[in-house]
Write a protein that binds this DNA or RNA. Structure first.
Length: 466
RNA sequence: GGCGGCAUAGCCAAGCGGUAAGGCACGGGUCUGCAACACCCUUACCACCGGUUCGAUUCCGGUUGCCGCCUCCA
């Protein structure tokens, strides 16, 4: 089977075929670092981290690049407000980004380029665009001549004339067309700036991604991804810049994730309902957040609400419990059981079902449903009087494999050894044998107060942290 | 005005031509000394109106209701 993915460019699911067999060049637009990231910023990071993991699972070598926009108007403003150097501020929030995103189970990209490290490349790129007649300089600003690029609008599927009609762009006499956009902005008094052929200034927003993608991945890449709202104008402009400069296709596949709403409302500054990952992960297990987001297809909107996250947490708990119970059973004497092959075949079928789900445009909602099915199978197997350690092992491997692809590895059961708890459990076992249930319940309550939940099974008592 | 998305059980969410996956919550059983975990059972006129089809939740047209982009917001 091959991977099918939805390409914004064609508005269809397409079979994924990379430029180079076995390798994927992927670029994901990263954050502007002037604050902690909010959960809306986190969605593409999680979604495309999962895409990457699955591609790797499928045997691809993925060169995954995600940038930091570390100079722009908002950053300059934030730095001024906080009376902090731009470089200090961005460094601070870049580190915070790594912490937040790591907590959410996302791997580091192959490269995390920053705009300020690529100014020279950007200047060179802009000069190329000017030479080719796609850009012009006015008073120290450089603009992209949108009308010059034939394919403008092909990603957002708008004709350039429609865009012009709808454009609520303030009259800017400097630009020769309202749809033209800045490649280079002349510096205002006291602003951070770099030298250029057009005087002191800094890059416009869109140019950075064109340049860094090209520098790190080449003229044509396989997948370019980001939030839905970046489709226009950001990605549209990137295409215009890159394809005008190189004469080649910029990216073969464009992927865009849907929005996050808060309590059914758009997350916005005016509503004051921004949820920062930095804050929320103190209240909600970040793994639950990831699981919650992956329970909806990446192109659909996700509604973030307390009760929905809680029910996701319960679901994840169910999976974790099944996994723990398999581990627990494995520590007991391995019985020989019949029908082992049948169970193993069943497990393999689930793995195949998982792959089928993920092959279909990374349908994590269905993939998670498969993990639930696997949990059910495991629970049913644990009902058996005799279990085979090979089957238990195979279940555990399957769980590790699938949850690993989702970026949701299980907690290691290292803390399963606790002498004090064990001796209390032994004492309780004795008490129960002597039908001293009040003492038994006392011990159970005592442990519960410490956050340890006991579960009696036919094979003995197991415990977990509740 | 242009482009696009969504409407499926109490809630969340897949499916997208052959009479509806999964999860959470609820109810009833089983297991248990009691619990917990778990298992079993039960629960859907797929927004509305037309059309195409042997057959539509799934395709086409329309209606209604939400939502997004067209503003350097993921």
């Amino acid at each position: 089977m091959s991977i099918q993915l939805y390409n914004t460019l064609t508005r269809k699911k397409e079979r994924f075929v990379p430029l180079e067999e076995g390798k994927v060049k992927m670029y994901v637009c990263g954050p502007t670092v002037y604050n902690y990231i909010h959960i809306g910023n986190a969605r593409p990071v999680i979604a495309f981290d999962t895409v990457r993991r699955y591609l790797e699972y499928r045997g691809y070598e993925v060169n995954y690049v995600s940038n930091f926009t570390d100079v722009d108007d908002k950053i300059i403003k934030a730095a001024n407000d906080l009376n902090e150097e731009v470089g200090e501020l961005t460094e601070r929030f870049i580190q915070a980004y790594f912490e937040d995103v790591h907590a959410l189970g996302c791997e580091k990209a192959t490269a995390h380029p920053r705009v300020t490290e690529h100014i020279e490349d950007i200047v060179k790129f802009i000069r190329l665009l000017i030479e080719k007649g796609y850009a012009y300089e006015t008073n120290g600003d450089v603009y992209y001549r949108t009308r010059e690029f034939d394919g403008y609008g092909k990603l957002s599927h708008q004709s350039i004339d429609e865009l012009k009609v709808g454009a609520r762009i303030e009259e800017n006499v400097i630009k020769s067309d309202p749809l033209d956009f800045a490649l280079w902005k002349t510096a205002k008094e006291g602003e951070v700036s770099w030298d250029s052929p057009w005087g002191k200034g800094r890059p416009g927003w869109h140019i950075e991604c064109s340049v860094m993608a090209r520098e790190l991945l080449g003229d044509t890449i396989d997948i370019h991804a980001g939030g839905q709202d970046l489709t226009f104008p950001h990605h549209e402009n990137e295409i215009a810049q890159s394809e005008a400069a190189t004469g080649k296709t910029f990216a073969n596949y464009w992927m865009h994730n849907g929005y996050i709403n808060i309590d059914n409302e758009k997350m916005s500054k005016s509503l004051g309902n921004f949820v920062l990952v930095h804050d929320i992960r103190k209240q909600i297990n970040p793994k639950v957040l990831r699981f919650f987001m992956l329970s909806v297809h990446y192109r659909h909107p996700v509604n973030f609400a307390q009760e929905l996250v809680e029910s996701a947490a319960n679901g994840l708990e169910r999976i974790q419990t099944a996994y723990n119970n398999l581990q627990h059973r494995l520590t007991l004497s391995a019985d020989l059981a019949e029908d082992s092959q049948q169970w193993i075949t069943g497990i393999d079928e689930q793995i195949t079902a998982f792959e089928t789900a993920m092959d279909d445009d990374f349908n994590t909602a269905n993939a998670i449903a498969v993990v639930f099915e696997l949990s059910k199978q495991a629970n049913i197997y644990l009902l058996e009087k005799n279990t085979d350690s090979c089957v238990l092992q195979r279940f555990i491997e399957a769980f590790d494999l699938l949850m690993g692809v989702l970026g949701l590895p299980f907690e290691t059961a290292a803390e399963l050894v606790d002498d004090e708890v064990d001796s209390l459990i032994q004492e309780r076992l004795e008490a129960r044998k002597n039908r001293d249930f009040s003492r038994a319940d006392e011990i159970r309550d005592e442990l519960k107060a410490k956050g340890i939940v006991l579960e009696d099974t036919a094979q003995g008592t197991r415990w977990k942290r509740g």
